[in-house]
Amino acid sequence: MSEKFPFDGRRWHDMGGQDAGPVTPAEHDFALWEKRVDALQVLMSTKGHFTVDGLRRALEDMGEDAYEKYSYYERWIAAVNQNLIEAGLYTLEELGEKMDEARTRGETYGEAARG
């Protein structure tokens, strides 16, 4: 964490009113994997495994570095995963094994996801 010192009472995500550069009106159509992350967030929170506050807590605990470095849905899958592990739906070990196995399927997302 790179909290400012002395601490001004805000965490890094609490950026309202700060200085920043011009707004660049960029947009893109979401990729399949991003839509899947969004769908998992909606479905698993609707099923009661975590709340929007749980999602935010995980996002806000990732720190400024992650916020600047990773894209929106990269941070979201990290936060969804964190909440699902906390909810006991699977373990960190199971996640690691599944990720290792998925990597062996091919070099692209399409190959690793089998579609």
């Binding site: 994997w33 899947r36 899958i77 699902l84 990720m99 998925a102 996801a113």
Partner: peptide
């Protein structure tokens, strides 16, 4: 992160 999405 894409790999994490697949695994999750």
């Amino acid at each position: 992160w894409q790999c994490m999405e697949i695994a999750v």
